[in-house]
């Protein structure tokens, strides 16, 4: 999957790209609206991460010109201006989704996955870790071939870990991933309760606690 990051703050753009590359996406960068538009006409991308405030041509204008040219590339807007007017303007202009800064890497990755899933069901697959199997088409989890009963939240947590084996997630990241809302107290230990229940079902060995940091699922041969 090839992504174009259009963001004029170079430090942020570099960080986003580093995260995308860690997650096995190809990542290219553009630093202003005109450069981005040129790149999008010249090359194929699966998704664009687009900042609104950009030099030369702003994000809204950029989406408009893409849509007017019948280019239906998936666009995820990024902006620190999480004002309703900006969201409405962006979505009306033809963006597919909107993410307000500062966002967590985890939420960014989840949105990208969800947007890419919308465009192609082929992204859905079976993922293995040891004797665990997660079937994304059926949204089902099997341990040694036996179907496990899961709540929706447990499934979402497990799906995240299966997709990101060997990646450590903090409680804050997990709690934003599950609940997402802005403004709620986030460092709650509600996550620990969900992890405990999940471990009861899949067995204690799959997800490791990293004390004071978070949780990780180690890659295991199937």
């Amino acid at each position: 999957m090839r992504l174009l990051v259009v963001e004029d703050e170079r430090a942020l753009s570099d960080n986003i790209c580093a995260v995308l590359k860690q997650n096995r996406y190809d990542c290219e960068q553009a630093y202003d609206g005109e450069e981005a538009l040129d790149r999008l006409y010249e090359q194929h991308f699966d998704l664009v991460l687009l900042d609104i405030m950009l030099p030369k041509m702003d994000g809204i204008e950029l989406i408009r010109s893409l849509r007017e040219a019948d280019n239906d590339i998936t666009v995820l807007m990024l902006s620190a201006r999480d004002r309703i007017e900006d969201k409405v303007a962006g979505l009306d202009a033809g963006a597919d989704d909107y993410l307000a800064k500062p966002f967590s890497n985890l939420e960014l990755l989840a949105r990208i996955r969800s947007l890419l899933r919308r465009t192609s069901d082929a992204n859905r697959s079976e993922i293995h870790c040891g004797n665990l199997l997660l079937d994304e088409r059926k949204q089902a989890v099997y341990l040694n071939g036996d179907l496990l009963e899961m709540t929706a939240k447990e499934y979402r947590i497990l799906e995240l870990f299966m997709h990101n084996q060997n990646t450590t997630f903090t409680r804050l990241q997990l709690s934003e991933y599950l609940w997402g809302e802005e403004g709620l107290e986030r460092s709650s230990n509600a996550i620990d309760a969900h992890m405990k229940n999940l471990r009861k079902k899949i067995g204690p060995e799959y997800i490791e606690t990293i004390r004071a940091i978070g949780y990780v699922m180690r890659r295991r041969p199937a």
């Binding site: 703050e9 430090a11 942020l12 960080n15 986003i16 580093a18 995260v19 860690q22 620190a80 800064k101 500062p102 966002f103 967590s104 890497n105 985890l106 450590t168 903090t170 990241q173 940091i213 978070g214």
Partner: peptide, 15 residues
């Protein structure tokens, strides 16, 4: 919020 966003993505990738 912009510098906060930069700091956060940076720190999270180090965690």
């Amino acid at each position: 919020k912009t510098p906060l966003a930069i700091m956060r993505t940076h720190l999270e990738s180090e965690v």
